[in-house]
Amino acid sequence: MSKKINLTLKVWRQPDNRTSGRFEVYPAQDIDTDMSFLEMLDVVNDELEKEGKDPIAFDHDCREGICGMCGCVINGQAHGPDAATTVCQLHMRRFQDGMTLVIEPWRAKAFPIIKDLAVDRSAFDRVISAGGYISVRTGAAPDAHAVPVPKDSADQAMDAAACIGCGACVAACPNASAMLFVSAKVSQLALLPQGQPERDQRVVSMVSQMDSEGFGNCSNHYECEASCPKEISIKNIARMNRELTRAGVRS
């Protein structure tokens, strides 16, 4: 049974990256517990617009937990309190009546704030451009079983490929490190035969791009893994460490 709850929101408001931001307090009244977190923000924004105020900017797209667009830090946790859940799939039944929620954007030097809760994650795109692809001639699709892939490798590559690039790993990391994201992208290709020709160059280029974007270094806290909505394992980080050493030894 759904019910209605009232909450107090402390939301980070920041007009743009050049202006400093601050928290604003808004009431969230009569919130249906069957709403998602983003629907709750929509309701609050409706009220703000009625009052002639600027609505809270936040990123969202599919609202099905698979696109990687949404994300904010709720009471100090990326994507909120539920494990393996994006903020669009977080539901208001998770919260109690009368709670205060502190809502902040991903905070990382490499993710400049666009407005309020929306951050610029194009650093991730540049890391992918540096090597997160395979170079193949397009044409007719090859037969499905033309290239054999060991079951274990296929499973691990699939697990790594579950990454939606939302940036929660960076947001949760005390060092704002992008190691979980980059290692998932390196791993999904390093594990498969199609990724072999560019394997060494890929890891070197992607790590180099990651470093120059201003992400921090991994200090093995594993907050990333605990915050990842797709449960990407830190074993990918170990694999990337190994891949880089391998590339260095082979070059």
């Binding site: 830090v73 494990a83 704002a176 921090g216 270094n217 200090s219 605990a226």
Partner: peptide, 21 residues
């Protein structure tokens, strides 16, 4: 490395709530 990590943080969270161990 620690110095770089502090620089990479780019603003502290008002609330920080570890969910790892």
């Amino acid at each position: 490395l620690t110095g770089e990590n502090h620089a990479a943080r780019g603003g502290r969270y008002a609330v920080s709530n570890s969910r790892g161990d």
